[in-house]
Design a protein around this nucleic acid. Structure first.
Lengths: 223, 223
DNA sequence: TGAAGAAATGAATTAACATTCACTTCATCA
DNA sequence: TGATGAAGTGAATGTTAATTCATTTCTTCA
């Protein structure tokens, strides 16, 4: 036995892995997916291209991990809100508006992770992420339905999916490179973000709030 | 002058173009984007690969045209609903529910056009399409705001975007190859589609319906 | 110190299609 | 009919990065 992994090596390996993830995340958040090449990541992390493959089996898995790390934090934030006090409506409003505001703090990264056209395989990893967020929203909606404050004529999971799709789409315009020309440091910007977050959250809450009287819609089918 | 395009040639050219578009559309609607290769399209249209390039400058433009043709029909249907009689709420409900039901008639195609991971360039073409649909919804919302039946505390264009994002996302699950195991010909299937369409439309309408009393939310920011 | 094995390297290879183009076939008309 | 130029062909080429792997450099410990 002439070689055994010591603590110092193990630490370096761990550090390398973290550096790769950090570099990958930084590149995406600065230049979107077109900058997110394995060779660039390696260079940014200060190592050779091949080294990246000692830590991640493929580009897709590397970026899936970036995606999942960022997302997990958001899911945790939402889960904390879901578990906090207040009515379901209040929690839903806070959850949506918080998500929007947090996304707007790093618009380039949020845009890349949520909406920017990217490799098929990375795109597939987004599904998991949306599903996790949707599940948190579902739990709030279901609680509100139990409590009687939210409408029960739509399944909680469908409502959650629609809400998530809605606020994500509402975010895309402001997040995208086109819709994002203002300086982020201005007070006006901060206010407009808060207003956007509030409007989107209001729409989300309204969509599931129990109607006061049971005025049934009369759907027609013209086509 | 030894050559001039005659009517018969012109007709053939036009027909070829149409055959390419039809073949492209058929391939996508049968096998999704992985089947949508230029060589396959050419084969399906009964011609050589290079011929396709006499009609379309690139794969992306070819499929952008497929996308826009299918989408335009949907936009037209929605526009007709928007221009029809009834309250804004009724028209919104009908518009959303009609869109959902029509999409479910050809789920594989709708899934590919709306949600399936695909080439960046084709993905970019989707934006135009969503924008057009969003514009129709916006017009309904704006009318409802004018009439006083829809809430005015959110901008019509934002509301429209959120609504579109919501119903598209609500569709994705049922449209995707995973969520679509039933035979489409059963009566049960048709009923479940109608129910889905109604629920999604109900959420959309509720999100913008004017609240009876002005109960302000109290947003908090825990994070 | 040096043998043994792990980690790192980065140039070369691969893969998967889109796209091109030199050539063939077809349509037109003097 | 054959000269002219358009339409059609499909094998060859181009493109763009991801991925590999033979080689080099480090670590460990007898």
């Amino acid at each position: 036995m002439a070689y055994r992994q010591t603590a110092s090596v193990e630490a370096r390996l761990h550090d390398n892995r973290a550096r790769i993830l950090a570099a990958a995340r930084r590149l995406v958040s600065e230049g979107g997916w077109k900058e997110a090449q394995v060779a660039s990541v390696a260079a940014a992390a200060g190592m050779a291209t091949g080294t990246v493959y000692r830590y991640f089996p493929s580009k897709a898995e590397l970026f899936a991990e970036v995606l999942s790390a960022v997302s997990q934090r958001e899911v945790d934030v939402l889960a904390a809100i879901a578990a906090s006090g207040g009515s379901a409506t209040q929690r839903l409003h806070t959850a949506v508006s918080t998500f929007v505001q947090r996304a707007m703090r790093n618009p380039r990264l949020a845009y890349a992770l949520i909406a920017e056209p990217c490799d098929k395989e990375i795109d597939e990893a987004r599904l998991t992420y949306r599903a996790a967020i949707s599940e948190v929203i579902r739990s709030i909606v279901a609680a509100g339905q139990q409590a009687g404050s939210l409408r029960t004529d739509v399944a909680a999971d469908l409502a959650a999916t629609v809400i998530v799709g809605g606020f994500m789409e509402g975010l895309i315009g402001p997040l995208s490179p086109l819709g994002r020309r203002q300086r982020q440091d201005s007070e006006a910007y901060r206010r407009s973000v808060a207003a956007l977050a509030d409007e989107i959250a209001t729409l989300a809450c309204a969509s599931v709030t129990a109607p006061p009287s049971t005025v049934r819609q009369l759907p027609r089918r013209p086509s």
